[in-house]
């Protein structure tokens, strides 16, 4: 029956047409379409994921900001505290340094005063002994010779006077 016997001409043309159609579509259309479909599906998936992430981030943002503010305040307090401590420390150090310096100056002054006093005392004593000698000489020139015992006695007397002072 002719309905069930394939005609060679039609088989030939069908083969040619189908192969050409397949070759053209497989080269220029399908790979591009399939790639685009896959890419678009991926893009949509990524978009949804991104949106979800963005929403979650937005929700967290306020909490983050609050935490940041608290942290900043804490840091500020710390810095102020440190500054105050440093100020006290510096003042304390300066004070100590000043007192040490002052003490040094006072000590030096005391030493020099003591020296001056001793010197002047020595001077004074020399002068007094000279005066006393002159006086005694003048007084005793006549009565006394330049006796050594006499001088010693006078010196002893002068020591006594000095100790009294």
């Amino acid at each position: 029956m002719e309905l069930f016997t394939p005609e060679f001409g039609l088989v030939f043309w069908m083969f040619v047409v189908f192969i050409i159609l397949f070759a053209i579509l497989a080269k220029y259309a399908w790979p591009y379409i399939i790639r685009s479909l896959d890419e678009r599906a991926e893009l949509i998936d990524k978009g949804v994921e991104y949106a979800q992430e963005a929403k979650a981030q937005l929700d967290n943002a306020q909490a983050d900001a609050k935490a940041l503010l608290v942290e900043a305040q804490k840091q500020q307090m710390e810095i102020l505290h440190e500054a105050a401590q440093m100020k006290n420390h510096i003042i304390e150090e300066a004070r100590q340094a000043a007192s040490v310096e002052a003490k040094k100056v006072m000590d030096a002054a005391a030493v020099s005063i003591e020296q001056a006093r001793k010197e002047s005392e020595l001077q004074f004593r020399r002068e007094v002994s000279e005066f006393a000698l002159q006086i005694a000489e003048k007084m005793m020139r006549k009565q006394l010779s330049d006796d050594k015992t006499q001088v010693e006695m006078i010196d002893k007397l002068l020591n006594e006077i000095e100790n009294k002072n």
Binding site: L10, W13, L21, L25
Partner: peptide, 18 residues
Amino acid sequence: LSITKNVLALIIAALVCA
């Protein structure tokens, strides 16, 4: 190998498909 009615229809279908 005539371009019969079916062959022409085949070519038309292939063109529409493309």
